[in-house]
Amino acid sequence: MIDVLYFAWVRERIGTPRETVETQAATVAELVDELRAREERYQAAFADLSALRVAVDQDLTDFDAPLSGAREVAFFPPMTGG
């Protein structure tokens, strides 16, 4: 079980800010593949991974990152603070 969080337009496309996912995915990329296979709204959100950033347990990382022991994965567009 892993908490998956979405922010900004990723949240809007998927239609929820957070969900708990039952997964055996070993990496972020595998989790993305599982989500894409679910429904069209996930395909829309994950259509272009170069437009997305990912954090595992609140640290920025990349799509190859392992998920072993992770509690929280977040997907979002490039950040626009300041």
Binding site: F7, A8, T80
Partner: peptide, 19 residues
């Protein structure tokens, strides 16, 4: 903090909203 802190801006105008 502009590109490494997790903030996202959305603008609302008469024409609609956009990230």
């Amino acid at each position: 903090l502009k590109s490494r802190a997790p903030f996202w801006k959305k603008e609302y105008t008469a024409e609609g909203a956009g990230w």
